[in-house]
Simulated scan of single mutants.
Amino acid sequence: MYARIRFFRLALIGLLSGSLAACGLFADTDPRFDPAPLTEYAPSLAVAPRWSASVGSGGGYGFIPQVTGDAVQVATPSGSVAALDLASGAVRWQVRTEPLSAGVGSDGQVTAVVTQSGEVLAFGPQGTELWRSQAASAVNIPPVVGNGIVAVRTSDYRIQAFDAASGKLRWEVQRPGPALALRTSMRMRLLPDLLLAGLPNGRLILIDTPTGAVRWEASVSAARGASDLERIADVVGEPLIVGTQVCGTSYQGRTTCFDISQGGRPIWSQEVGSATGMTTDEQRLYLPDDRSRVHALNLTDGGGLWVQSALLNRQLSAPAVAGPAVAVGDFEGYLHFLSRADGALMARLRIGGGPITSALVGVPGGVLVQTGDGRLLRVGAGG
């Protein structure tokens, strides 16, 4: 019975946060939450698709392309898993499996996805299936692969590590979680011998990958408010690492940076959160907040540099740096390019395929975009 109640709660918050902001819930009754209309401006950046490939069908927050060397790995909810040439988009290998809930994670040798029943699948460098292992519960966040493990974060707030060669469970770490959690753009990150992950309780955790020992844990943002909805403070997007600095951002919360070389001491914290995540050019952090205002923060001290409100309530994706711009996708399938220097609108490109919910991935000279209809595009920015 408890499991059914928990599933209902997770499904409910997934629906309520389909736009991942209050605008999606109240837009019909309160014009303050209406998406801003697109405005005309003089483009100052040339953007165009370099290639486009159909890799399956469907999309979602748990599906983010991953670049390894000169290849890009990609998966879709329909059960398609593929590796493409990054320069041309040509398919190097492709396999079909059962419907998926999350993917992909890859180190170029092992590529992992998760089925809707919580089974972790691993494929070799030519798409040959290596092993299958059952996760503790559903997985809606892309796995990560490296350091000899395939790691997943499950819906019951466990991080589980499977041996990359055999699929045997090596360790797991579990933390208590809130009554409600978001289904949004979230990712874990691997460092040499370490795994960094955000949690639904507003915390970051650093785990030793050989042993599963927790090396460090700290709060990005504390839950606030009287109701379960008001108290959602999930760490969203991918935690960022620049030198010895680790940064995380949370939904309706804060963005906080820590110094790992000093035991994880907080360096700064700003009252700016995000619904989908952030990116960095190693001088600034860029993030769309819960109302799709895009912020630039100084990486050194968290000081606000600019805010762009022209895309208010357009349900923006996690951003990526693209040449002189920072790129975001919106609910109508548009890509927007904003100046990294001052936030000015530089270019706009209609991608189509429904809302862009997958996090954008920066590549040399542009971005990778995975669409809601199962396409992967490489878009060039600046030439």
Rank of each mutant, 00 (worst) to 15 (best):
A138I: 02
S54R: 15
V328R: 04
D228M: 09
A320R: 06
S185I: 02
V145Y: 02
V67N: 11
A233S: 15
P288W: 03
T300V: 09
G323E: 11
L287M: 06
G118E: 06
P210R: 08
A36C: 11
V361L: 04
D208W: 12
I267Q: 15
N201F: 00
V110N: 02
A83Q: 13
G225Y: 10
Q315V: 14
T76E: 04
V91E: 15
V214S: 00
Y251K: 02
S261N: 10
P35A: 13
S261Q: 06
P49T: 13
V72T: 12
I159E: 01
L20R: 14
P65S: 03
R348W: 04
L360T: 03
L338Y: 07
S117G: 15
L299P: 01
P192W: 02
G383C: 00
S250W: 07
L196F: 12
L360C: 10
I5T: 12
L84S: 09
A233I: 14
L25R: 14
A48W: 03
A82H: 08
L100T: 08
G212M: 09
R187M: 14
V220D: 07
A151P: 08
A135S: 14
Y2T: 11
N140T: 14
D163L: 08
P142Q: 12
S106K: 06
A325I: 02
A347R: 03
G59F: 10
I356E: 09
W131A: 10
M346S: 04
A344S: 15
G225L: 11
M186R: 15
L229I: 14
D373V: 09
P288Q: 06
P49Q: 12
P77E: 10
R291T: 13
Y157P: 00
G277H: 06
L130K: 13
R32E: 08
F8I: 14
S250G: 08
G79P: 06
G124P: 08
G167W: 08
N298M: 03
S17R: 02
A296E: 03
R189V: 10
G103Y: 07
G103H: 10
A138V: 04
D85R: 13
L38F: 00
P31C: 03
T111M: 04
M278G: 00
P324L: 05
I267M: 15
T300M: 05
D290W: 00
S221D: 14
Q174W: 00
V367H: 04
L312D: 13
G302K: 01
R350D: 07
A179D: 13
V272M: 05
P210V: 04
G253Y: 05
C247V: 15
P355N: 04
S274D: 05
L100D: 03
G146E: 09
L305H: 07
F162R: 05
L305R: 14
I241N: 00
S309M: 01
G24N: 11
L297S: 09
S274G: 04
A320W: 09
L16G: 11
G237C: 07
T29W: 12
A87V: 08
Y251F: 15
V74S: 05
L377M: 11
T244L: 00
Q94F: 10
V47E: 08
A83W: 01
G127Q: 02
R203H: 11
Q109E: 15
I260R: 14
Q283I: 01
R170G: 14
W171A: 05
A71N: 06
